[in-house]
Simulated assay, not measured.
Amino acid sequence: MSPINLAIVGVGKIVRDQHLPSIENNSDFKLIATASRHGTVDGIPAFTSIEAMLDAVPGIDAVSLCMPPQYRYEAAYKALEAGKHVFLEKPPGATLSEVADLEALAKTKHVSLFASWHSRYAPAIEAAKAFLAGTTIKSVHVIWKEDVRHWHPNQEWIWQAGGLGVFDPGINALSIVTHILPPLFLTGAVLEFPENRDSPIAADLQFKSGQGLAVHAEFDWRQTGKQSWDIVAETEAGQMVLSEGGSKLSVNGELTFTAPEAEYPSLYRRFAEIVKAGTSDVDLAPLRHVADAFMLGKRKFVEAFHD
């Protein structure tokens, strides 16, 4: 089978760090074009808009959209309308409604739409899911705290409305939680907004399942030093800790599973799989929890944040 001719829109840090190596090492894809206001890839035809790229390169089969979520809908709509399969970086959009609209369009056009959640492909996720399925869960505590100055230096879009603020990393935790735990709903939230920003810098979330399982999540962008990406579950079989963003699994203090990180290679394997099968993969559960937090959460204003 011939490789899937792929184009990337939005050539930034995540593309250079993750997308390009993953594509280069996957024989199912061939990168044939890029569109970005500033970024380019050596040896690949570059354009400054998706419209110019689609007009000039008719052989594109699929498009990976890696620009900020506030600007993704319009590009995704144009790609789908042109009959291209579409890979959406996380979060898949700025609102639930726009992603639902894209999913309907993809179905009409008989092309694949992929809402990617890279943290679900962290190495220890499936082992954690299997462990929890074999016991009774008593409670869960999610601690997702990192230094925004380190991970998102001078990225103003992330503080703007629709940029999600601390939910940009927090949604990674939610993508894991919605994969390894029973269905949950939000019961309460406190969102901390810097007085000079439109998106939160911290969030404290309370969830429950229909069976009464309590889940507490803490997201914070002000942590310096060691970064925390941990999910701690108290169960009848003991304490389970899924740490380092899903890279390691420990039970009762003993490391039971770890493996090299391969999230983005796994995403591109999944994208190839659904393109070949003629299906879509659009799970909006993580984004729905974020929307619920903005709808139900109490707002607390804190000191101004400056890079």
Results as ranks from 00 to 15, higher is better:
F114H: 10
S112G: 00
T48I: 14
V99E: 02
K109L: 08
S64E: 11
E81S: 14
P91E: 14
M53N: 01
T40I: 15
T40E: 15
D55L: 10
A94F: 00
E51R: 12
Q70T: 15
A75E: 07
T108W: 03
V63N: 06
G93T: 05
A100T: 12
T48Y: 13
K78V: 07
G43C: 09
K107V: 06
H85V: 07
D42Q: 14
A94D: 04
E74M: 03
E103P: 00
G43M: 10
G39I: 08
C66L: 14
I44E: 02
D61A: 11
A46D: 11
A52H: 11
S49G: 09
D61C: 07
T95K: 12
E81K: 15
K78W: 05
L113D: 04
S112K: 00
D42I: 07
A46V: 08
V57K: 11
E89K: 10
P92C: 06
P68Q: 07
E98I: 06
A94L: 01
V41T: 06
A100L: 15
F87A: 10
H85D: 14
L102H: 03
G43P: 05
A56S: 15
F87Y: 15
P69E: 12
V57C: 07
K109C: 07
K109T: 06
P45N: 13
K107F: 05
M53A: 03
A56E: 14
A75L: 06
K78S: 12
E98S: 13
T108K: 15
L105I: 10
F114E: 08
P91C: 08
L96F: 10
S64R: 05
P92S: 06
F47T: 01
S97N: 14
S64I: 09
L113R: 02
A106W: 08
P58E: 14
A75T: 05
K90S: 07
V57Y: 06
I50S: 09
L80A: 04
A94P: 00
A75F: 03
H110D: 15
L96M: 15
G39R: 09
P45A: 13
S64N: 13
S112F: 01
D61W: 11
T108I: 14
A46N: 12
A56W: 09
L88A: 06
A76H: 03
V99N: 01
M53T: 01
A79C: 09
V111E: 04
A106M: 10
P68I: 07
A62V: 05
S112D: 00
K107I: 02
I50P: 00
L88P: 00
V86Q: 09
C66I: 00
L96S: 06
E103H: 14
A62K: 03
D61R: 07
Y73D: 00
M67C: 10
I44G: 00
L113F: 05
T108F: 05
V99M: 04
T95I: 12
E103Q: 15
L96E: 13
L65P: 00
A94H: 01
K84W: 12
L102S: 02
P58V: 04
G39V: 09
M53F: 06
L113S: 03
H110S: 15
A104W: 01
M67T: 13
A56V: 04
K107Q: 14
A52L: 11
I60W: 06
I50E: 06
A52F: 05
D101Y: 02
G43S: 08
A106V: 06
K90D: 04
I60Y: 07
P69N: 08
S112T: 00
D101V: 02
D42K: 14
A106K: 03
E103C: 04
A75R: 03
P69F: 10
L80M: 08
A79Q: 01
